[in-house]
Amino acid sequence: MPQVATRPDRHDRLGAFLTRLGPIRNHYKVVPGLYAVGTPTAEAPVLVTGNYKLSFDALRFSLTGIDAWILVVDTRGVNVWCAAGKGTFSTAEIVHSVKHTRLADFISHRRLIVPQLGATGVSASEVKKGCGFSVIYGPIKADDLPAFLKQGESAGEAMRTVTFPLKERLVLIPVELYLQLKQLALIMVIGFVISGVSPEIFSLSAAWRRGLLLFAATVIGMVCGSALVPALLPWLPGRQFWIKGLWPSLLAGTALLLSTAVPPAPVDQIALLLWIVAVSSFQAMNFTGCTPYTSPSGVEFEMRRGVPLQILLAVAATLLWLASPFLNT
């Protein structure tokens, strides 16, 4: 039986850093199975989680001084909430893990503490039917587990209510930006080409000069939609995310145009502003998936309004950008 520490070591910290940054976010796993925290007896509580290492770590680090079992279910390295939505953190998977680890041989009671956010994929009554264990839904946050256990495995309203404070929004930003590097590279290749189209067919100097401007505009749009919108989420006007994405980009876009030492041609300016707003609105809309309060029906509702506008803005920006060199000669 592997016994795990309740304090992070150097590797845990480095792994957490890289995962938060982006590069290894999909491969940060622990081996599914049964783990011991402290020196659990047959009466100790059994805490169920997925095999995403950050979730597993958050769980064990919250258990300092507590003797418990951790049953790690195979969620393919995805956190419990996402996995529950996708069906990998499920009734069947829990039943399978209970049987596979022969949990009943180690434990005298028949209770599993399952994270509340896992309930999306788990039916308490079917788990009971499948393996004889009763599911008790634990608190939303691992940090609340000690209090939950002390209160006789019961949670108050606060522990059962999902929140989305600034700190939780901020940690999502690096991955959000990281995920756009590929799109950014692609946009830049195309951007470089269309920036060089000119009355003399193709101008390398224009491609370079205008291409850089376009690059700056794209990065600003992405930062607005994927960093400023998450950070300022509750304070931005509008409930729909594509609307929230408009405000920071209008401000930042205007600031960019005012701050450029050599101001671009007026048509270019309009094109850049439209482009920044389109990118930001789109990225803001994509942030819906990271929040714990947007419903799929709501997201589809807002996309039917936001996406046509974003396409319109992007097409207008592209046409103006292409036309500009011909208008200024």
């Binding site: 309930a119 788990v122 009554s125 994509n286 998936g289 929040t291 947007t294 589809e300």
Partner: peptide, 20 residues
């Protein structure tokens, strides 16, 4: 999913634009 008598209906999913 957890209602023992299926009294609740909802079209479940993840509210995520990328997904849609």
């Amino acid at each position: 999913r957890n209602c023992p008598v299926e009294a609740i209906t909802v079209t479940p999913g993840v509210g995520c634009a990328v997904e849609i």
